[in-house]
């Protein structure tokens, strides 16, 4: 089964004469780890926002988990994202005024489904944080006490809690050094595999590509 099915997708920003994004076809299977290489200006941002349901495609179809995102309204897409997707940013993933634990649990407050799937929220949080190698003493600390590498791992835990089907990662390793980066990727893959989550990983960094079984270049994909 395909988690993502993308057909003749077009998107154009208002006031622009040509499409920012035009993708003929892209299928991503369940459990797949897809690396999308996208240099800046390649329409990466637009692509991610479409995938996450922030933007609505102008034409074409974007089906995720069998649901057509292009025909959902804004609120429905927000709910869909809350229920089925975990998002990891480049950096500053966490709300500075919440503790590590509270940041991890944030998606469960916006999605009943994720909360249900997480089961015992405290236990699940503990398990995730433990698996991601975060010291127990950091759990109740404000996130500002953490290093960038630690913060990114907390972000992974947040993306994974409640077992969403799709993890979208936007250059989550760009602020990390090489050693931390490899460790981070391994943890991400391991945990995603445990839950059977599909990963769409976007980055401009070609060195990371070697970690992924499938690599797609956005420039080749995007043919406006």
């Amino acid at each position: 089964m395909n988690v993502i099915e993308l057909q003749n997708l077009h998107y154009r920003w208002q006031g622009q004469s040509r499409d920012t994004l035009a993708i003929a076809k892209l299928h991503v299977a369940q459990g797949e780890h897809l690396f999308i290489r996208g240099a800046s200006g390649s329409g990466k941002t637009t692509f991610l926002n479409l995938l996450a349901g922030i933007l609505r495609p102008a034409s074409g179809s974007l089906t995720i988990l069998g649901q057509a995102l292009q025909s959902m309204d804004n609120a429905a897409r927000d709910r869909f994202r809350a229920d089925h997707m975990g998002v990891i940013f480049q950096q500053f993933n966490l709300l500075p005024y919440l503790s590590v634990r509270e940041n991890v649990q944030l998606p469960c407050h916006f999605s009943k489904r994720r909360k249900q799937q997480a089961g015992d929220m405290q236990a699940t949080t503990n398990r995730l944080l433990e698996h991601l190698g975060l010291d127990r003493q950091l759990w109740e600390r404000p996130v500002t006490d953490l290093s960038v590498g630690q913060q990114q791992r907390v972000a992974v835990a947040r993306a994974l809690i409640g077992s969403p089907e799709l993890i979208i990662a936007d250059e989550p390793t760009s602020a990390l050094d090489t050693d931390t980066r490899d460790g981070f990727l391994n943890l991400l893959f391991q945990e995603a595999a445990v839950q059977g989550s599909t990963i769409v990983f976007v980055s401009h960094d070609p060195h990371i590509a070697s970690h992924f079984p499938r690599v797609v270049d956005l420039r080749e994909l995007n043919q406006p």
Binding site: D78, R79, V87, L95, L106, P107
Partner: peptide
């Protein structure tokens, strides 16, 4: 702005 983006990512509606 960052705070808003994070909230949007975890599923918050602009409302």
């Amino acid at each position: 702005r960052r705070e808003m983006a994070i909230l949007r990512a975890v599923g918050a509606h602009p409302r």
